[in-house]
Design a protein around this nucleic acid. Sequence first.
DNA 1: ATTTGACTATTTGAATAATAAAGTCAAATA
DNA 2: TATTTGACTTTATTATTCAAATAGTCAAAT
Lengths: 203, 203
Amino acid sequence: MSESDHKQEQIIETALKRFAHFGINKTTMSEIADDLSSSKASLYYYFPDKASLILAVIKHLLKIYHTEITKHFRKAGSVKEGLYSIIDIRNSFARKYFMLHLGSEGLQDITVNEQAIKTILREAEQAEITLLAELLEKDMAKGIARERDARATARTAIDMMIGLHLSSIVKKERRIIPDESHFDELTKQQKFACDLLIEGINK
Amino acid sequence: MSESDHKQEQIIETALKRFAHFGINKTTMSEIADDLSSSKASLYYYFPDKASLILAVIKHLLKIYHTEITKHFRKAGSVKEGLYSIIDIRNSFARKYFMLHLGSEGLQDITVNEQAIKTILREAEQAEITLLAELLEKDMAKGIARERDARATARTAIDMMIGLHLSSIVKKERRIIPDESHFDELTKQQKFACDLLIEGINK
DNA sequence: ATTTGACTATTTGAATAATAAAGTCAAATA
DNA sequence: TATTTGACTTTATTATTCAAATAGTCAAAT
């Protein structure tokens, strides 16, 4: 890694810390520079504008997420284990990086190319579907799972988990920072839903 | 029905039409009065303030919804048919009354007792869960469905359908009025998910 | 008991000013 | 040459004002 790349990484990680704590809108470039004991102008040497820094931070975060998911999926022996990993990792990220408001309501009135963010979120989503679909195909090959369009099924299963997350947000008071118990209950419901999905309601 | 009750009903129905078309915020009390060829002051004879009119309109709407659902549930022979009814009726309401933004993002910055609305929405939700749980219990008695906590299962199934709806909103551009095809696609995905839920992924 | 016109009180929205933050650049540094 | 910086300009956000729109009231009329 070059000197320059290293500095970029540092900026991204520092920005992420502030974003996660105070939110993107409440974080100024000067503050990030101060955290680095550097100058604002220096930041602009590495990133053309705030929007591209935000984008880089989100990409960074998605990379971590993907690494984590991949690690778990290598150990997962079934679709169920895969889905459980997605639930746990997603919720731990949601807890940690709630202030970023990725997905759900967020990113509104942020001066950023919303389309670009949508695109990389979409890509991350596709990668996740692929991983789960592969697991499902293995289960189908083993004769554990019924034959069925693996991608469509994986996509719907993930959408359901995301959907339950969104449902839980909507039911809470708006604009309130959720507490630990909120995520605990959500995880419980998602796993219950997951079990339903896996086992099926009918005999 | 007394004369007074009749006038109240008229006001509610007129208000609903305007709310559905232009949204609650863009509808003034004067406009509602004009639609009724009446005076604004007259409205205030029947409703103490705008907030209580809004609440009455939402209650009215939920009553219609509940009637519709109940009608379908009497004919439904299985949980699957029940869930399909919920999907169809919910989506038809979402199409028709989108401008009210019930659930999802909406109701923000409306001068109304948000807690009161949450409460009646919660009640409506509970009633719906009860209906679906009854159907599920019948299926369990018939030996079609596995034995399982009927209420928790019904609740999760409905939450999933709502969740998929929310997912679809989040994935679209924000603050855009959705078109027909959006709801068509949503319905399709919800039914696919419903089938998964019912049949189960595994053999 | 209900309706109304004429009223007041509140809220909203547009315009403006003040402030803060984004973004630039020539000169300095290493 | 690559990087950093303080001082700068530009752009965006926030606070403030004020007129217009809307909510809400009430005594008099039906």
